[in-house]
Structure formats: structure tokens, C-alpha cells
Amino acid sequence: MSQMRKFDYLQLGVAIAGLLMFIFLAFGYTHHLGYIDWIDQFGFKHIREPLTPERSWFFRNITRGGNTKWTALVMAITAIIALLIRKIDVAVFMVVNVGVFGLGVMMLMKHIFHRPRPDIYHVIAQGGYSFPSGHALNAVLLYGSLIVLVHYYLKKQDQLRYAFMTLFGALVFAIPISRVYLGVHYLSDVLAGFSLGVFFLIMSKELIFKYRTREVFEHAINPEPSANHA
């Protein structure tokens, strides 16, 4: 029971694939390679078009779920609750993913690459740099982290668990898409933020919970009196 589970090599493979995708996109942008332009034009053609009042209203509201203030607020509330119920791993998991990776690393990356935002009509006002998409990164790290927590903590409430996981999963994809539609990001920005977020999320899940994610959360649901915490 206290035995350490093996590292999940399938998830490790997905994490590495995410990191390689980010490097592929970053290299393409910094070296002005043709595939970046192809990806970006594909995004504008198949995601942004057509611009309609209904779609604009929908994506303007969806994109708020990835705003810095909102993600920081959700992170803080979740971390405080975790600390109150003595789940230190959960608090660290949220703060590292959303605070360090989603907010801190994102700002660093934007200043490294200095990519201007698309020179097209912006449905919403947005300043700052474009690569990688902070909203895409935040969406994966915030809502992906919540999916992990819901999956383990609501083990016995299947309907509620699946409802939350469906909602959070939809936001993980809808928020990045909204950035392309709104004209404030290229598709390559969004893919870079998304893939980097996948890498950070999987690695933090595996490492912060000391390779024992399943056991840690199952113990939280069904604690054993004789079990000793490391």
C-alpha cells in the first residue's frame, strides 16, 4: 500500500511530445520557417471565419476563463482549501502549475520571444506579446489540474465527477480556440502554449505526488487508521 508506483511512461511520452512540439514551434517562429505561416493561416481560415455577433459573444465570454486574474483567484482558493484540509501536495500542485508555470513562466517566455500580436482586427482589446499563448497555457494548467483533482477526489460520485471533467475538459480546448477567433493570437501561439502546458501538467503531477498519485488520492478518500504518511 505504501509501495511507490512505477512512473507512468505513457504519460511521460505524452509530456515529452508536448515539449518537442513547443520546441518545434518556437524554432519555426524564431527562424521564420514556412510551416509557421501555414499553421497560422490555417487557423485564421478554419477557426476565425466567419466572424459573427453570436460567435464573437460566445468566444469573448469563454476567453475570460483563461484570464490571469481569474486563474490566480481559482488557484488561491483551491490552495487555501487544500491547506485547510491538510492536503499539502494538492496546494503545491496548484501553486506550481498555475502560479509558477502558468503565470511566471508564461511572462518569461513572452519576453524572450517578443512576438507581436496578429495585425488583424481584434474582437477584444489585448496588449502584450503573442508567443506562446498565456490563455492556452493557463487553460491546460488550471483546468487540467482541476481534472486531476476531481478524478481522484470524486471517485465515488461518478455523475458529478464526469460532469466536472467534461466541463473542465471543454474549457481546456475552447479557451485556446477563442484566442485565434478573437484575433489576438496566431494558431502557432496557441499550440505552443497548449503543448507546453501538457508537459508541465504531466510532469508536475508525477513529480509532486512522488510517483504515488493514485495511492495519495485514494488514501485521501479512504484513509486507513494505521497508514503512516511520509
Rank of each mutant, 00 (worst) to 15 (best):
P225L: 08
V100G: 01
R48N: 07
Y162Q: 13
G66V: 11
Q11E: 02
V74T: 14
V180T: 09
I36H: 07
L191H: 04
Y9P: 01
K6G: 08
I120S: 04
V180A: 02
T68Q: 04
N228Q: 14
G102P: 13
Q157F: 08
V148K: 08
R5V: 00
K210I: 03
R48A: 07
V90E: 09
M75K: 11
S204T: 15
E54G: 00
G99R: 05
T166Y: 02
G34I: 00
R115I: 05
Y121K: 06
A91R: 06
N138L: 01
T166F: 04
I124V: 15
K87S: 07
Y211T: 00
L171P: 12
E206M: 11
F113N: 04
A230D: 12
E49D: 11
K210T: 08
I88Y: 08
P116S: 08
T166N: 05
I85L: 05
V98L: 10
P116W: 02
F209W: 06
F27R: 10
N138G: 10
V92P: 08
F217Y: 14
F131E: 07
Y129I: 00
I39F: 11
L187P: 13
A139D: 08
P50E: 03
L84Q: 14
M21C: 03
S226K: 14
G127M: 00
E215A: 05
N67V: 00
M203Q: 13
Y143K: 10
L103T: 10
N67Q: 12
S145N: 07
S188P: 06
K155C: 00
P116V: 12
I202T: 10
L146D: 09
R161D: 09
L137R: 00
S226L: 14
S226E: 15
F42C: 11
A79L: 07
D119R: 02
R48L: 06
V172H: 10
V74P: 12
V90M: 12
L51Y: 10
